[in-house]
Amino acid sequence: MTEEIIIAGFGGQGVLSMGKILAYSGLMQGQDVSWMPSYGPEMRGGTSNVTVIISDHRISSPILFKYDTAIILNQPSMDKFESMVKPGGLLIYDPNGITRHPERKDITVCKVDATKTAGEMGNQKIFNMIVLGGFLKMKPIVKLENVMAGLKKSLPERHHKLLPLNEEAIKKGIEIIDIINQAN
């Protein structure tokens, strides 16, 4: 098994940390992982993305140009990465702020209303965990217990009291993700 994922959105949405948690989750279940961020002008504001690879084998290139899954959280990322999903692959997006919805019919497209749901749950910061939950519903490549272990490892100890809230957010994401188009 090899899963090649791009997560892309605005800086500050928790794109890099979502990738980190996913990578740590893979690590926790003994898989090879790589996490390659865009570290350029993006991290000084604007768009941000991270490539995460989880595999049973040695990972060759950490940089990719086609992805099994794209998790897209803003319009510029939609414009850039929709075309880079492999045929039959998966695109997950949050419709908040999206003006042009995905158009491809040869990939599975899912919507996860994470911004709205995070607002309803009273903490905007758990937005990325709702999205992550949605991804895990579609691609259960890492077990929830390993995600929680990964989360614990990547969160500083002073934030560990937030672990239950994050778990709740992941479960919410699993619940609310919506398949818009099934790849044929």
């Binding site: 980190k20 990578a23 690590l27 090879d32 992982v33 790589s34 996490w35 390659m36 961020p37 570290y39 990972i59 950490p62 940089i63």
Partner: peptide
């Protein structure tokens, strides 16, 4: 290079 410096791996 910037790739190997910035990426995370096991």
């Amino acid at each position: 290079d910037g790739i190997i410096g910035q990426m995370m791996e096991k």
